[in-house]
């Protein structure tokens, strides 16, 4: 049982390594964010497997939290990519009157 879960955890680690390789090699920034998203999903599954290896159900709470954090992280990184800069330069250049549409 424990040995079996070790093997499963190892294969999930292999997938995470493949995703990291894509994150390093990705031609565009979107490939990198996609790979990091997959890395996070696999990390959730790995934490769930680890919870059963150690036999402590409390570890599942970490997986629960991480699945939400991963999503927020991906969307935040995408917002940053869409704006292109840390919300700094664009705001200085945009000149509109209040109530006017961009």
């Amino acid at each position: 049982m424990t040995m079996f879960l070790y093997v499963i955890g190892f294969s999930i680690l292999v997938t995470m390594a493949l995703a990291l390789a894509r994150a390093l090699a990705g031609p565009t920034v979107f490939d990198r964010i996609l790979a990091v998203n997959m890395f996070g999903t696999k990390a959730v599954l790995l934490v769930a497997v680890v919870a059963f290896v150690t036999g402590r159900a409390d570890v599942l709470d970490i997986a629960l939290l991480y699945s939400l954090l991963n999503f927020v992280g991906v969307v935040a990184a995408l917002r940053l990519v869409e704006r292109g800069s840390f919300y700094a330069t664009e705001r200085i250049h945009v000149k509109t009157k209040p109530g006017e549409k961009l």
């Binding site: 979107f30 959730v44 939400l68 999503f71 991906v74 995408l78």
Partner: peptide
């Protein structure tokens, strides 16, 4: 955990492909 993954993954991949 599965429900959260199921609800967040299409949103994440739509925002990825859309941007």
């Amino acid at each position: 955990i599965f429900a959260f993954l199921l609800f967040t993954s299409p949103t994440a991949s739509f925002s990825l492909s859309h941007s």
